[in-house]
């Protein structure tokens, strides 16, 4: 028998994982417009796949992985357009200049680096856990993190602006 979710269950899912999905999409895409697309896409995928999890961490990891994949697809789609509808990579909504600078600096990073930075600094994952999530080598994660942090620091200090 097919699993169905009640309105309350769907609402709980959105409350519990919505912010994680949205923030990660923002960190990847830097456009609230595109982040919203990804947000909806991820939850629709969840509804279609109806995955079963061992625990909450497992469930959260699923959302993170699917969000990253959706963002990759989104970026690929943008690349397939000869030139995107203007500025596929827009600075995200930020309350002040300091944060705008941070978002702008993040756009200078490569795609896996943005995800790694976000998962490490915001979601608090260790490099080993990130390696498992992204299915890449642990040493690669560490080297991406080191380079990305260094680059961000330089950018925020204004050395490369």
């Amino acid at each position: 028998m097919a699993i169905t979710y009640t309105d309350e269950q769907m609402r709980q899912l959105l409350t519990q994982y919505g912010p994680t999905v949205y923030r990660l999409a923002m960190a990847q895409l830097h456009s609230s417009f595109d982040a919203e697309d990804v947000y909806q896409e991820v939850f629709l995928k969840y509804l279609r796949a109806k995955p079963v999890f061992q625990n909450r961490e497992h469930q959260k990891a699923w959302f993170i992985r699917v969000t990253i994949n959706c963002c990759k697809d989104h970026l690929k789609k943008a690349c397939r357009r000869d030139l995107p509808l203007e500025q596929q990579m827009l600075p995200a909504a930020s309350p002040n200049e300091e944060y705008a600078a941070l978002h702008m600096a993040l756009t200078q990073l490569k795609e896996p680096q943005r995800a790694i930075i976000h998962l490490h600094y915001y979601e608090g994952y260790k490099t080993k856990e990130i390696a498992e999530l992204l299915e890449i080598n642990h040493s690669t994660v560490r080297s991406h993190l080191r380079r990305a942090s260094k680059k961000l620091k330089k950018l925020l200090e204004g050395e490369e602006f």
Binding site: G18, V21, A92, A93, Y99, H118
Partner: peptide
């Protein structure tokens, strides 16, 4: 600084309602 910047980034109420309706 990073955490503060992304603490502000939350899905809007409108987006949540829209997504719920979509689901």
């Amino acid at each position: 600084q990073y955490r503060k910047a992304f603490d502000q980034a939350l899905p809007s109420e409108e987006l949540q309602q829209e997504t719920l309706a979509l689901l």
